[in-house]
Structure formats: C-alpha cells, structure tokens
Amino acid sequence: MSAVATAELEYSQIRECSGREDGLTLVTDQSTDLDAALVACAKGDRNGLRRIFDQEAGRLVAVAQRIVRRRDLAEEVVQEAFIRIWTHAHQYAPERGSARGWIYAIVRNRALNMLRDGSREDLVAADHLETLQDSEQLEQIMAAWHRLDHNSRLKECLGRLDETRRRGILMAYVGGYTHGEIAGRLRLPLGTAKSWIRRGLLTLRECMA
C-alpha cells in the first residue's frame, strides 16, 4: 500500500473520530452492550444474539475472510461462530476479558480450524473469483497495521519491531498463517522464523506492558 493511501486512510479515521465528540464513551457503551447481549443469549433471548449480529457481523465476516480468504467460507465461519456464541454464552466470564474479545476469539478459532482442516491450497482455488490472491492478502495483512488508530499502543509497538518480525506476527494473527507458511513467504529457515516471531512477541509484550 502506498504512503499516500495510508495517509488517506488515517485521515478518514481522524475525521470519523472528530465527528463524534464522545468517541471514548461510544466504545465503552458498545462493550457494555455486548456484555448485556451475551447475558440475554445465555437466558435464551434471541434478540441478544441479533444485537451482536447487527453490531459486529460485518467486521466478523471481514476478519474471517482475511483468514479463509473466500467470502462464502467466511460467512460459513460466522454462521457457525454465532451458533457457538449462542450455545456457549453462559460460559462468558467478564473477569476473563471483554465480551468483544470473547466473540472475536470464537470467530477466529472457527476460521483457523477451517483453514487447518482443508489445506490453504484447497481453499484458494485459482479459478475462484472471490478468492483473495496471495499478494492481495499480504497487502490486507499489512493494511491491518496501518489502519490501527494512530494513538494506538499496538500500532506504535508493532512499528518499533523490525519489519520481518512485524510481518511474521501480522501474517499469523491477521492472515492465519502457520510458522511454516510464514517461513516460506519470508524466505527464512523454519527455526529462524519461529525464533524471530518469538522474540518479536516478547518485545511487543514488553513494549505494551
């Protein structure tokens, strides 16, 4: 992605934020909403699940698609994930992280499982129009970092890593790549890729602590 495009993206985010003065409140309210929606799900109230869907489904489909690449598979992932959210809502414990984190983790796990069950090559059928090609996907992966709020600690700390480590971590989290796939794409021996990622994660934890 070019520097100009990135700057534009950030600019549009700033504009969005300044458009609403209560940006922080909004975030808090949203997470409280999700908490309440999960409680409703646990009681068997479908409106709770519907609220989660209305608020998050668009992003969840996009997150799943970055991993499984195909839109139809991403929707299948989200469908299964919502059924799991419904049946497991009673297990959500607020003391173990945010409702949002819990919901996204379910979608991510489901997407990763789908990816690992079929091989990436099967999923990425060359003639499939909706399939993201490798280069497009790598671009999306790096874009995820650029898109982070410019005040974000994660953005800053990822920025401090050297590029290969940053790429490795983003390929794993955003794209669902395995150690082996990352080593292949970065042209590194497997052991080296593993230890770079490990050291990158340590630096990131220290930076964000």
Binding site: G58, R59, V61, A62, V63, Q65, R66, R71, A74, G97, S98, R100, G101, Y104, A105, R108, A144, W145, R147, L148, D149, S152, L154, K155, L170, Y173, V174, L204, R205, M208
Partner: peptide
C-alpha cells in the same frame, strides 16, 4: 487477546 484485538475491530466491515 485484548492486545491484538484492535487489528480485528478496525477492519472495514463487509
């Protein structure tokens, strides 16, 4: 989870 979550929540919604 919370550390990496912003990478997901800032995605362009489909």
């Amino acid at each position: 989870r919370e550390r990496f979550l912003p990478l997901d929540t800032t995605v362009d919604p489909a």
